Amino acid sequence: MRDVHRDAFAGSEGTPAEVGLVDALRADVGWIPALSIVAVEPDGQIVGHVVATRGHVDGRPALGLGPIGVLSRVQRRGVGSALMHAVLAAADARDEPLVVLLGHTEYYPRFGFVPSTELGIAPPDPEWAAHFQARALTAHTPELTGTFEYAKPFNDL
């Protein structure tokens, strides 16, 4: 997984922050093994990874999605979309109520994400508001509103 995120987020010198973030998330109480999903080629090579970890909305359980990474040589071939569908389906099957992410506003709506404020969810940093998105899952209730808090490693970035 480290190699996937290193390649997917390459662009500047040094190790991308996402590599260390995944390591820190794996060691955190918010890590949910069933929501760490990899994409594998027929030869067994891991080419993509997505993770959702325990977060909270005013103390109530929810999920924070990310990072999601795909090796550059297989990007734009549907691997990222397959990972998104898989992690959202797995979260829904676990009766999770809500998934949030910070991401591109023209990409993530195809997976059902809307501006988080439409669901009454405030970002942990108000400056993120334009890109902070949420998706309600089957177990969602309208009472789940408030400010989202990511797993601790996100705060250490």
Rank of each mutant, 00 (worst) to 15 (best):
M1A: 14
R2Y: 11
R2P: 10
V4N: 08
H5M: 06
D7M: 11
D7I: 08
F9M: 09
S12T: 07
S12Y: 04
T15A: 09
A17I: 06
A17R: 08
E18H: 05
E18I: 05
E18S: 08
V19Q: 03
G20E: 09
L21W: 10
L21F: 05
V22K: 04
D23F: 02
A24V: 09
A27G: 13
D28E: 04
V29G: 14
V29C: 05
G30H: 08
A34Y: 02
S36Q: 15
I37W: 06
I37G: 11
E41M: 13
E41K: 11
E41H: 12
P42M: 08
P42E: 08
D43W: 00
D43L: 06
I46S: 13
V47G: 10
G48A: 15
H49V: 10
V51F: 02
V51Q: 14
V51I: 15
R54T: 14
G55P: 13
V57F: 13
D58C: 13
G59K: 14
P61F: 09
P61G: 14
A62Q: 10
L63Y: 12
G64N: 06
L65Q: 04
I68G: 12
G69M: 08
L71F: 10
L71H: 13
S72E: 14
R73E: 15
R73T: 15
V74W: 02
V74E: 10
Q75E: 15
R76H: 13
R76I: 12
R76A: 14
R77M: 03
S81K: 12
S81P: 14
A82I: 12
A82F: 08
M84P: 01
A86V: 01
A86W: 01
V87F: 01
L88V: 02
A90H: 06
A91F: 03
A91P: 00
A91T: 01
D92H: 09
A93V: 14
A93Q: 15
R94H: 07
P97I: 02
V99A: 10
V100T: 13
L101E: 01
L102H: 04
G103N: 00
G103A: 02
G103L: 00
G103K: 00
H104I: 07
E106I: 04
Y107A: 00
Y108S: 04
P115M: 04
P115V: 01
T117L: 07
E118I: 02
L119V: 02
G120D: 08
A122R: 11
A122H: 01
P123V: 00
P124A: 02
P124C: 04
P124V: 04
P124M: 09
P126W: 06
E127A: 15
W128Q: 14
H131A: 13
H131W: 14
F132M: 03
R135H: 07
A139L: 07
E143R: 06
L144A: 13
L144D: 09
G146H: 09
G146F: 11
T147Y: 04
F148L: 10
F148Y: 07
Y150V: 08
Y150K: 06
Y150C: 06
K152H: 08
K152I: 05
P153I: 01
F154Q: 00
D156I: 00
D156M: 04
D156T: 03
L157G: 03
